[in-house]
C-alpha cells in the first residue's frame, strides 16, 4: 500500500516536471536566444540564496529520487504480482477490451523503455557526450544539430520514446489520482479523459521541437 502511494506521489512529481520541461522545450520556437537564456536562467534560479546551479541540482536530486522511488515501487509491485498470481493461466483475455487494456499492459515494459530513453536523452542533450550532429555549448544548437534530417533515426527513436511516455501517462495519471483517492463513480470518466488529455498534450508538446527541427521548421 505504501508502495502504491510512493508510486503515485513520485509519478505526480514526474508529471509536474514533464509539464515544466515541455514548457521549456517550447521556448525553442522563440529562437536561439530565448531558448539559451531560458536554460541559463535555470542555473541561476534561486541565486544568490543558493549557489550557481543550486536550485537545478535540488530539482535533479528530487527527480532522481522520484525516478528511483517510482522504479523501486514498480519492481516491487511487479514481483509481488508475479508471486500473487502463482500459477499462470492457460488463456488470458481482458474483460475490458484490448484497446482499454493496452496502456495498462505496457506500463511495466514501457517504463523500462522510458528509463533507457532518459539515459540516452541526458547523454545526448544535457551532457552532450553523444552528439550526432556535433557538440555545442548552446543548448539550442545541440537540439538543432541532434535532429537534423540525416539523423532521422534519432528523431524516430525520440518519437517512439515520447509515444511510450504518452501511453505510460495515459494510465499513469489516472492511476495516481485514483490511488490518491480522487476517483468517484461520477468522476471516473472525466478523470480518464483528463489523464488522456494531459498525456496527449505532453506527447504533442515534446514531439513539436524535434520534429520541427527534422522537418526544417526550426533552424
Amino acid at each position: 500500500m505504501a508502495l502504491k502511494s510512493l508510486m503515485a506521489v513520485t509519478g505526480v512529481i514526474l508529471v509536474l516536471f514533464l509539464l515544466a520541461h515541455m514548457y521549456g522545450n517550447l521556448m525553442v520556437f522563440g529562437g536561439q536566444q530565448a531558448f539559451d537564456e531560458y536554460s541559463h536562467h535555470l542555473r541561476e534560479l534561486g541565486e544568490p540564496m543558493l549557489p550557481h546551479s543550486g536550485a537545478l541540482w535540488i530539482i535533479r536530486v528530487v527527480l532522481l529520487a522520484s525516478v528511483l522511488g517510482h522504479a523501486y515501487s514498480a519492481v516491487a509491485l511487479w514481483s509481488r504480482a508475479k508471486k500473487a498470481r502463482g500459477h499462470r493461466y492457460a488463456v488470458t483475455k481482458s474483460a475490458q477490451g484490448a484497446s482499454a487494456r493496452y496502456a495498462t499492459q505496457t506500463m511495466r515494459w514501457g517504463g523500462v523503455v522510458i528509463v533507457l530513453f532518459v539515459v540516452f536523452h541526458i547523454l545526448h542533450l544535457t551532457t552532450n557526450d553523444i552528439a550526432p550532429g556535433g557538440a555545442s555549448t548552446s543548448p539550442y544548437e545541440r537540439l538543432v544539430n541532434g535532429f537534423q534530417p540525416e539523423f532521422w533515426y534519432v528523431t524516430l527513436f525520440y518519437v517512439l520514446s515520447v509515444l511510450a511516455v504518452g501511453l505510460h501517462l495515459r494510465h499513469g495519471i489516472w492511476s495516481a489520482l485514483a490511488t490518491l483517492g480522487a476517483n468517484k463513480a461520477k468522476r471516473e470518466r472525466p478523470l480518464h479523459a483528463a489523464s488522456t488529455l494531459i498525456a496527449v498534450v505532453l506527447t504533442v508538446g515534446f514531439l513539436l521541437g524535434p520534429l520541427s527541427v527534422t522537418f526544417g521548421l526550426v533552424e
Partner: peptide, 17 residues
C-alpha cells in the same frame, strides 16, 4: 497484504468482471 494478494495498480479488470 499479508495474505499475499498483489498490489492494486488501478487497471480495472476487477470491476469489469
Amino acid at each position: 497484504d499479508e495474505e499475499d494478494f498483489g498490489g492494486c495498480t488501478n487497471i480495472g479488470e476487477c470491476a469489469a468482471v
